[in-house]
Amino acid sequence: MKNNFFNIVFAAVLAILAVGNAPAAEVKLLNVSYDPTRELYKEFNPAFAKYWKAKKGDDVTVNQSHAGSGKQARAVLEGLEADVVTLALGYDVDQLYQKRKLIPENWQSLLPNNSSPYTSTIVLLVRKGNPLGIKDWNDIVKPGVSIVTPNPKTSGGARWNYLAAWSYALKHNNNDDAAAKDFVSKLYKNAAVLDTGARGSTTTFIEREIGDVLIAWENEAYLALKEFGPDKFEIITPSLSILAEPPIAVVEDIARKHGTTEVATEYLKYLYSKEGQEIIGKNFYRPTDPEIAAKYAKQFQPLELVKIDAFGGWDAAQKKHFSDEGVFDQIYGPGK
């Protein structure tokens, strides 16, 4: 009886180890990404595998890890061996250079469009019929509106959300910083839940049915509409929002160690190909290829877009707004 048990244990351990050691001809990549890109890479990875098989004859498996963008950057710094990172904003990728020199300093100039294969923006998602009559940012800071948005400390999307609201407030208050601070302070007073990642917020809003309005990635809002049907939610495109440029990079230090530099680089470049851009458009991101962008332009509402440069780039924005004791810490916390 006892022997039998140990035999079973031993066999099970061996079986699991055997599964772990795949045949040699296979290439493995780990793409550490932010929260809402799950569906995008679920479609893109097999397309790349097919392309790579035809080009090089190798089988490539891309493993995925998804969580809030800031959390993912932290994980890579702490030793999560990502061959490529595809995060929500430049600051998070840049940390890989700043903190551990895992990528070169000029990482953002290594791929086209500041290493962003697509852009997106931030919109508002409300429940069907828009019961509170929300049309723009100023409607959601009114008292009594319950907002769902992730935590800017861990989520990239949340930081874009915050900066979009800030830009709107600046425009409508003659670029007065104090008024903008007051505006976002009211916004976060209305926040019902701060999840760690964008997808967590979406499920809070959609499946747990908390809140009147979700501040969401444009792609995330359109995906929710597609998944749950347009009879449940409405997308409100505000008059002004931020131009989000989620960047990508090969984590050169780790890829070199894994011997995957070439395939990792080609993987990211393939995002810029016609086929990659098509998949991007189909998943409600804004393609950067002009031809494909024109094809998918009609699925988005027009709006004024502010670039991150208006904040002096990500370093300045992060320092002013999201660092410890930054503006977000000043406006959000117990008793504020």
Binding site: E39, N63, S65, H66, G200, T203, E207, E227, F228
Partner: peptide
């Protein structure tokens, strides 16, 4: 865990991943 699908997700983590995948 690092939440790598198929590699470092245990059952409880896999439940969360699936839930968030709709």
């Amino acid at each position: 865990s690092g939440h790598i699908r198929g590699l470092t997700n245990t059952l409880p983590l896999h439940v969360e991943v699936n839930y968030n995948d709709y």
